[in-house]
Amino acid sequence: MNTAAVRILGLDRRLVPLAATLALFIGLVVYGAVSYDAFLSPQVFLNLAIDNSFLCIVAIGMTFVILTGGIDLSVGSVLALTTMAAAALSKLGWSPWILVPLLLAGGSAFGAIQGFLIHRYRLQPFIVTLAGMFVARGLCYLIDTASIPISAPFFVAMAEARIPVGGGNSLSSGAVIAMITVAVALWLAHSTRFGRTVYAIGGNAKSATLMGLPVGSALVRVYAFSGGCAALAGLVMSVYMLSGYSLHAVGLELDAIAAVVIGGTLLTGGIGYVAGTVVGVLILGIIQTLVIFNGTLSSWWTRIVIGILLFLFCVAQRLIEARAGQKR
């Protein structure tokens, strides 16, 4: 998109990636609507929200981490560990009133430790969270290598709960939790001191420190938030699958990163929007829906298309950065 077009549309330059993402999503929906008769039914879109609720929650945590210029590879494993712990502990008869806060606190603590190591000892986020991924996945296997079914009344009730949205359509509890998470994240990113600090760190961590911003505590909190999101997503997945399994969500961190990037967040940090990530998640979801609707395409096309999209968006990001560099 050239500068003139941007001016005509009245867009802030920072909003260009978000606009491109939104255009892509609408394009995919139009393509689906033209190709398949049943595509435009409301339940297709509600299912998009239901089936991608845990990815959405994880991707939101990841957005904050990437906004600081970091990365969190441990989220998929933390999610799996949460499902395992939820399954194992609810089997022992733990009350959900203790279990849920405990698991959320556990995920946040896991993230906070990673954040502390990254900040205090200047370790690379990539390596620290990679090791965190090993730890969480290993702990899953230690609990049990087999899948544990969940039959606790609380989880079953949550799984059966349907929130009607009119016209005979409904949402799952997980989708509602994802939406609440999005709302909280939007507020955190755009209306709090914490959010501004996150953007400042991603823009330039040194400047942020010199400005007197609490860089260290913000970094720890960002990773804690990501870990907490992963744990919340784990609870949502426990409800969705009604089982805990150490192989749940293998590779989910990659999907989450892809959603964040496709959502227009720069991997170098500082620029990006929570709303963009939500659209990114929806794009990944709709690609999957299109592949399912097609019927003849095999599931691996989803991964290839996601890879191609990731490539296109990264190249576009580089072009935007290069132009920004010239202007400076």
Binding site: L254, I257, A258, T302, R303, I304, I308, L310, C314
Partner: peptide
């Protein structure tokens, strides 16, 4: 990461 995601699909 791009090839890591797409590679297994390929």
């Amino acid at each position: 990461l791009i090839l890591m995601v797409a590679g297994r699909g390929v």
